[in-house]
Amino acid sequence: MRCLTVICLLLVVAAVRPAPKKAWRLQGFAQGTTWHITYYSTDSILSFQSIDSTLQQLDSSLSIYKPYSRISRFNDASDCIESDIHLSNVVEAALQTYAATNGIFDITIYPVVQAWGFGTKKVTELPDSFMIQQLRACVNSRYLSFRGSRLCKQQPCVKIDVNGIAQGYSVDVLADLLEQRGITDYIIELGGEIRLRGRKYPGGEKMQIGIEAPGDNEFQPAMLQQVIAPGDGAITTSGSYRKFYESDGKKITHIIDARTGYPVQNQLISVTVLAKKAITADAYDNALMAMGLKQAFAFLQHHPELEAYFIYRKQDGSIADTGTAGFEKWKIVE
C-alpha cells in the first residue's frame, strides 16, 4: 500500500512538473534597423505580429521620417498638439535628462542636427557659425511644456528629434509587453540597444552580451571588444565611429553638442551604458559621449544607477578602453 502511495505520488509529481523551458526566437525590421527577441518559456506565447504592430505604433508616434507621426505633427505645428502616451513618456524622460545633464542632452537640437546633414534631408553644404547661431535660438528644452495632455512649444521654430532615446524606449515597451505575457527570461535587441532579464534555458546559463568596438584604424572592420554578463537590465551604445562623414579632413559625427551646436570632437569613440531601463541608458549614452572621458566619469560618480564602458583614442592615436567599477564586475574574463 505504502509502495502504491509512493508510486501515485511520483506519478502526480511527474504530471505537474512543467515541461522544460526552451528558446523561442523572433526577428524583424523596424525603425530603419533590425530587431531580435529571444525568450525562454515552455511554449510559444508571443507572435511576430504583436511585436511588429507595437513597433509600428511606436513609429507612428515617434518617427521623424514619417510625416504623419505625432512627432512630425508637433514639429510642423506652431504651438501645441494633442500628445499620445509614447510621445509624452519620451519627452518627459528627455526633459529629465536635459535637467540632469545641464542641457547636454536636448531633443530640441533637431534644427541644428538637420543643418549638419543628420536629419531627414540631405544637405549640400555645411552650416557656418552664423547659421548655427541663428538655429540655436530655437534650441532649448525650456521651450517645451505639457498642458494637460497637450505638448506645447514656446516658439514655432522649436522642433524635436527623439532619435537618441526612442530606440531605448521602444525596447522598454517591448519588455513590458513580454512581462505582461508572463515571460521572465528574455533578451530584446533593437538596433544594438538591449534589454535582458533572467537566464537561458534549458541550461540556465547567464546571457552574454558583446560590446562592439572599431578596429585599430578606420579601415579595419569593427570587432567585439568585451563580453559581459550583466544580469537584468539594459545596455545601449553610442558611437562616433559609424555614423559620420568627412569634410575637409574633419570627421563630422552625428553626435551634436547641444550647448555649442557643433559636432562633438573629443577622444571618445564609443560609450556603452548599463541601466535598469533602456530609455535611461539610451538617453545618457549620447550625453556621456559629448562630455568627454573626464567629465563623464565625474558625472557618473553622482549617478550610481548608471554604469558605463568607454572606448577612446589616446593622444598617441592608439585605442584604449576603461569602465566604471560596476561595469568591470560584469566582464567575462577569458
Binding site: 526577428q27 533590425t34 533578451i187 535587441e189 544594438g192 535582458l196 552580451i209 558583446g210 560590446i211 562592439e212
Partner: peptide
C-alpha cells in the same frame, strides 16, 4: 552565437 546580443552601432544580422 556564443553571445546572445551585441551592443554597438552594427552587429551580426542573421537572415531568416
Amino acid at each position: 552565437q556564443t553571445v546572445d546580443g551585441v551592443s554597438g552601432a552594427t552587429k551580426i544580422e542573421w537572415n531568416t
